[in-house]
Amino acid sequence: MSFVNYQRKEINCKIVYYGPGLGGKTTNIQHVYKKTSGTSRGQMITLNTENERTLFFDFLPLELGEIRGFKTRFHLYTVPGQVFYESSRKLILRGVDGVVFVADSQVEKMEANQESLKGLEQNLIFQGHDLEKIPLVMQWNKRDLPNVTAVEDLERTLNPRNVPSFEASAVQGDGVFETLKMVSKLVLMNLKGGLS
């Protein structure tokens, strides 16, 4: 859950990168880490398997600038995509304020994308979220590869709700900040509590 401190004028929000294994979630936040300066990012935490797959989560705290006098801090998490880490994914989704779904555009990954998206929806419902309301952004990743599904097909299959979506090549950094900025915007606009 977002954490707004009105006296100190601080906002803390939690954004989770979700999606199938090897889709590029960790690569997204690694790129953010690389491109941000030392003062705006904290220590990145990576809990990996031996072969560099996410075991529990990656965590990157980002200190952004101010918005209308509120100092803004985003906590970026990735979940482990491999199917058998379901219970870890459930834990990491707790208290989430916004989700980036990182889909793998490769043709043969369509089923894995659908499976993962279904899991995301179930987990969010289980935690009492309204799927219509939770800030969600889709990222069509790995557009640099030759064998990719057409964007229209990805939209049709994975994005019936028509949430904002971006093409990306996270290894090259393309689309990473566009995606993050959009989910940040949606999360900030969704923060409850007027200023009166």
Partner: peptide, 10 residues
């Protein structure tokens, strides 16, 4: 406003 928020570093 979002651009300004992310207006760090690079």
């Amino acid at each position: 406003e979002i651009d300004r928020l992310f207006g760090f570093g690079s």
